[in-house]
Amino acid sequence: MFKHCVRKSLAVSIGLSAALIAGSAQAEGKLSLYHWFEYIPQELLDKFSEENDVEVTMDTYESNESLLASLKAGKLGSYDLAVPGDYMVEIMANEGLLDTIAEGELANKGNIQPQWVDVPFDNGRKHSIPYQWGSTSFAVNRDVYTGDINTTDILFNPPAELAGKINMLDSQGEVLLMAALHLGMEQCSTDRDKLKALDELLQSAKANWASFGSDVAKDVLVSGDAAAGQIYNGFSAKARAEGANVEYAYPKQGYVVWMDNVVLLKDAPNRDNALKFMDFMLEPENIAAVTNYAQYSAGVTGAEAFTDPELAKQPESAPPEGSAPGAFIAVCDQATQEVYDQLWTRLRK
């Protein structure tokens, strides 16, 4: 009896696993997306799926640098599209990781807002389309600290209430630029004394930081695990919406601005669907859905008509009068970049 049961269950499991393996390889139209975490509403992906009869799969990454690392670690050729930030588009193009979009392949290319067409990181938009843009500074829990927060001292020379309760993004570009702004030094510096000062600043500030993490940046503020944290503006707005009493800072020393872009990856397995998706994301209504979800700004003409009017009034998307301008992250040459990589390694080790 017992033996019989076992034999039967083995037979059933063999059959079942065969069916599962067969079942997993049947979809026809596919699109494979490599995207930032918590950035696109599932409903929008479902809409694209339905309209085009394409099965969309999405994996997520948590920093521009880890996107680059995993594409170079053998994942190129598995994905059709990725969403790197401005400087990373330039790096990926230089590394030969991007495919070129021929003239006329994108029907909606004309929807790109004029100021986002001839951008320094992809002049004429040969590999990318604008996705969302926003800023990165930091947010402070106002229950914990009530003083002036519009200074980078909050991160690098924090008041006693915040010391040891700060989360930093696990993102080389954003942390190093923020530190450079704090010192008032230029990006891609080759001045050894300045670089040494930067190194010392990071090492001394590290003692006051509780954790490094990008995808957790919102949750640590909401859960109270951190009292202040480097964060993207839209993510900070979401933290506030989820009940954290946080205020997003516009430090007088400056802050990071960025634009994420949908890029066509080299060796994309579903290139046609990838182009369809790019066109889809250039429709004002669709890109506005991302804006409403992630609470950043779109770079597509006409998207304003579909975005939640409340968003524009949010403190996270409106720098106060007279605040310092934001800065894009610069791409350095190899020798300089290796020193900055070393700075990061020394910080994270």
């Binding site: 994996d59 993490g213 995808d215 957790v216 919102k218």
Partner: peptide, 14 residues
């Protein structure tokens, strides 16, 4: 994704 990797990804956001 397998369940553990999917859960790990989700947990990062809270």
């Amino acid at each position: 994704e397998t369940l553990p990797t999917a859960i790990f990804g989700a947990v990062k956001q809270g």
